[in-house]
C-alpha cells in the first residue's frame, strides 16, 4: 500500500519535473504568473471545500443561531445534539441500514463476480470464449431505456424488493474488462505451474489469481461502493410502494424537497427524543445534519483511498 502511494506521488513529481527542467532564477513574469496561478487554485479549492465546512459548522452550532442565519464562518456554541437526535429519526435509521447493506453486499458480490468472470474470460480453453466475452462487453454500449428497464424489473418481481439493489449490479462488464486486462498483465507462468501441479481452475483462481489481483479489486470495490452509496434513482423508480427500502440519498432528496412536514419526522422517534430536542431541531438544521451524515463516510474514506480512485481512472483508459 505504501508502495502504491509512493508511485502515485512519484508520478506527480515526474510530471512536474518534466515540464520544468532545471530552473535557475525567477523572472518578474514568473512571479506574477505564480501569484495568479496560486490565487486561482486557492479560490477553487476553497469553493470545493467551503460548502462542506459550512454545512458542518451549522450542524454543530447553537440551533437558534443557525435558524437566524448567524453562523457564517465560525461555529458558535459547539454541541453534537443534532447528530444524537438523528438517532431518533427512525426512517432515517432504516434508510441507513438499507444503504449500508446494499453497499456492503452489492460491492462484495460485484467484486467477487468481476474477479471470477474476469479470470474465466482469460482462459483460452473456455467453450466459445470470444463469443461469451463479447456477449458481456456489448452490453456497455446499448441500453434499452429507463421504462423497459423498469418494466423488466417489475416483470421479474424485483420492484419493491431489496435484491433489486444487488442482483442487477453483480455483473458489471466494465469492471470485468478491468480485471481481465489486469490478469493478462500478470506473468502466466505462475498459473501454468499450478495447473501443471494438478490444481483445478477454481483452486488456481482462489490461491493465485485472486491474491495477485487485489490492487485492481480494491479499485473496483471502492468505485462500486461509492456508486451504491450515492445511488438514488433506482430507489426512486423501483421502491415506489416500499418506503422501508428507500436509500439514504432518496430520503435526503425527500427531506430537501419537503419543507412543511419535517417536524413530524421527529415525532417518529424513540424514547431518547425529548420535547426540547424536537423543538430545537428545526427544519434547516435537520436538512444540514442529514446531508452531513450522508457525506461524512465519503469525506472520511476519500483521502485514504485517493490513490485507488486515481488508479481507477487511469485504468479506464485501457480498453478490452
Amino acid at each position: 500500500m505504501k508502495q502504491a502511494k509512493k508511485t502515485s506521488e512519484a508520478k506527480m513529481e515526474r510530471a512536474y519535473a518534466k515540464a520544468h527542467p532545471k530552473k535557475t532564477r525567477l523572472s518578474a513574469g514568473d512571479v506574477v504568473f505564480n501569484i495568479i496561478n496560486h490565487a486561482f487554485f486557492l479560490v477553487f479549492t476553497l469553493l470545493c471545500a467551503f460548502p462542506f465546512y459550512f454545512l458542518f459548522i451549522n450542524t454543530i452550532s447553537d440551533n437558534d443561531m443557525v435558524q437566524k442565519g448567524q453562523i457564517k464562518l465560525l461555529p458558535h456554541g459547539i454541541n453534537i445534539s443534532n447528530y444524537l437526535a438523528m438517532l431518533n429519526v427512525s426512517d432515517l435509521g432504516q434508510a441507513f441500514l438499507v444503504t449500508i447493506a446494499r453497499t456492503v453486499l452489492g460491492t462484495a458480490l460485484m467484486v467477487a463476480a468481476s474477479a471470477l468472470v474476469g479470470y474465466l474470460v482469460t482462459k483460452k480453453e473456455m467453450w466459445h470464449r470470444q463469443f461469451w466475452y463479447r456477449f458481456l462487453v456489448v452490453t456497455m454500449y446499448f441500453n434499452a431505456g429507463t421504462i423497459p428497464w423498469y418494466l423488466n424489473m417489475s416483470m421479474l418481481g424485483l420492484t419493491n424488493h431489496f435484491s433489486a439493489y444487488i442482483i442487477p449490479a453483480v455483473v458489471a462488464p466494465y469492471n470485468i474488462i478491468l480485471v481481465k486486462t489486469y490478469i493478462e498483465s500478470i506473468p502466466a507462468e505462475l498459473e501454468e505451474s499450478a495447473l501443471i501441479d494438478g490444481a483445478g481452475f477454481f483452486t488456481v483462481f482462489r490461491q493465485i489469481t485472486w491474491p495477485l489481483c487485489k490492487p485492481i479489486l480494491a479499485t473496483i470495490a471502492i468505485f462500486g461502493a461509492v456508486g451504491h452509496w450515492n445511488s438514488y434513482t433506482d430507489s426512486l423508480i423501483l421502491m415506489q410502494s416500499s418506503p422501508e427500502l428507500k436509500t439514504v440519498q432518496h430520503r435526503l432528496y425527500e427531506y430537501l424537497n419537503q419543507t412543511t412536514n419535517l417536524q413530524s419526522v421527529m415525532s417518529s422517534g424513540g424514547t431518547m427524543a425529548t420535547t426540547a430536542m424536537k423543538q430545537a431541531l428545526n427544519a434547516k438544521v435537520l436538512k444540514y445534519t442529514i446531508s452531513m451524515v450522508t457525506v461524512i463516510p465519503i469525506l472520511v474514506v476519500y483521502p485514504f483511498m485517493n490513490r485507488y480512485f486515481e488508479k481507477g481512472i487511469m485504468l479506464g483508459a485501457v480498453k478490452g
Binding site: 461509492v226 445511488s231 438514488y232 440519498q249 432518496h250 430537501l256 444540514y288 465519503i298 480512485f309
Partner: peptide, 15 residues
C-alpha cells in the same frame, strides 16, 4: 478538488 465528484447529485443539491 476531486471530492465533489464522489458525492451524489442529491448532496450537490443540498449544498
Amino acid at each position: 478538488t476531486t471530492i465533489p465528484n464522489f458525492i451524489s447529485w442529491v448532496l450537490v443539491y443540498a449544498i
